[in-house]
């Protein structure tokens, strides 16, 4: 049986761990609210742009469209853009994203395609262990606290430039969709070529538009890279909110576990102490009787 002193030290150490996890939970909860607001605020832009794009694509059609829309005509080299968080201690949040990407990569490799990875976020670097030769780039995001549109723009520009140089044919984006503070859903979506959202009836005003400045094709060409950036921006925001949700949850569990542990250790501590007192009493009494 552990000594009293060892137990006391153990209890104190669990107590201070609990204090840390509790504090982290509070911080995550506060940051979650801000991240959620940011995700909310980003929605109108994405929705409008999507509506416009859908209408435009329907009008222009696939003829002579930019490769960003029509693709390269091949799908041999597939790029998986994996967006994860920069920090851990958030339960299975990053693991789930990475696992989804790995599954997709194995599936594509089984079909005989070449798979490359574009890592955005430190926690995606574990992929280097599984696919050491398939890492196209590792985008450093450690300086980013709250994702801004420019951060997404940098990634988008990089991807588009690589696409232009023919480094890949199709790009998929992996991130975690923020469903609620308790539920994050790892998802993948095609990024390049830009998948065209089906035009929603009545919503798009494009049908009625008579004039374009410059031409419809030019406007579409200007909007396509922007659409890529917006998709990435949305992924970063969803990830951010999901990360804090997941972290809050993980830290809540950790705090509760620490509480259970303290309770168990305290009982053990008290029992041990009582046993020591009893032994001492027996010794004293038997000593007194012997006199």
């Amino acid at each position: 049986m552990a000594s009293l002193k060892a137990l006391k030290i153990r209890i104190n150490s669990v107590k201070s761990t609990q204090k840390i996890t509790k504090a982290m939970k509070m911080v995550a909860a506060a940051k979650l609210r801000r991240a959620q607001d940011a995700a909310q605020n980003g929605r109108p832009y994405a929705e409008r742009l999507e509506a416009v794009m859908a209408g435009m694509a329907a009008r222009v059609g696939g003829v002579g469209a930019s490769p960003l829309l029509a693709g390269t005509g091949k799908d041999d080299v597939q790029l998986l853009v994996v967006a994860t968080s920069e920090r851990g201690l958030a339960g299975a949040f990053n693991t789930n994203i990475v696992r989804a990407a790995r599954r997709k990569a194995e599936e594509l490799q089984a079909q005989g395609k070449t798979v490359k990875f574009y890592i955005a976020g430190k926690k995606g670097r574990v992929l280097k262990r599984f696919f050491p030769n398939a890492i196209l780039a590792d985008h450093d995001m450690s300086a980013i606290k709250a994702p801004k549109f420019d951060d997404a723009r940098v990634i988008a520009d990089d991807l588009i430039a690589r696409f232009g140089r023919g480094e890949f044919d199709v790009a998929h984006l992996f991130y975690s969709k923020f469903v609620s503070a308790l539920v994050q859903d790892p998802v993948s979506q095609q990024l390049i070529p830009v998948p065209m959202p089906a035009p929603t009836k009545g919503e798009t005003s494009v049908e009625a538009v008579a004039e374009f400045e410059p031409s419809e094709e030019d406007i579409l060409d200007a909007l396509l890279p922007r659409n890529v950036a917006v998709q990435i921006f949305r992924a970063l925001l969803e990830n951010q909110a999901g990360f804090y949700g997941s972290q809050m949850n993980a830290m809540d569990n950790a705090t509760r576990n620490a509480g259970d542990m303290i309770r168990r250790l305290s009982i053990q501590y008290n029992r041990t102490r009582q046993a020591a007192i009893t032994t001492e009493l027996v010794e004293i009494i038997s000593g007194a009787e012997a006199l």
Binding site: V206, A210, E211, F212, E213, P214, I219
Partner: peptide, 19 residues
Amino acid sequence: PGTEGDFGVLEGHAPFMST
């Protein structure tokens, strides 16, 4: 400030798109 020149938009403007 449109790409091909400034334009003013008042109520009831015809449907129009521009960079």
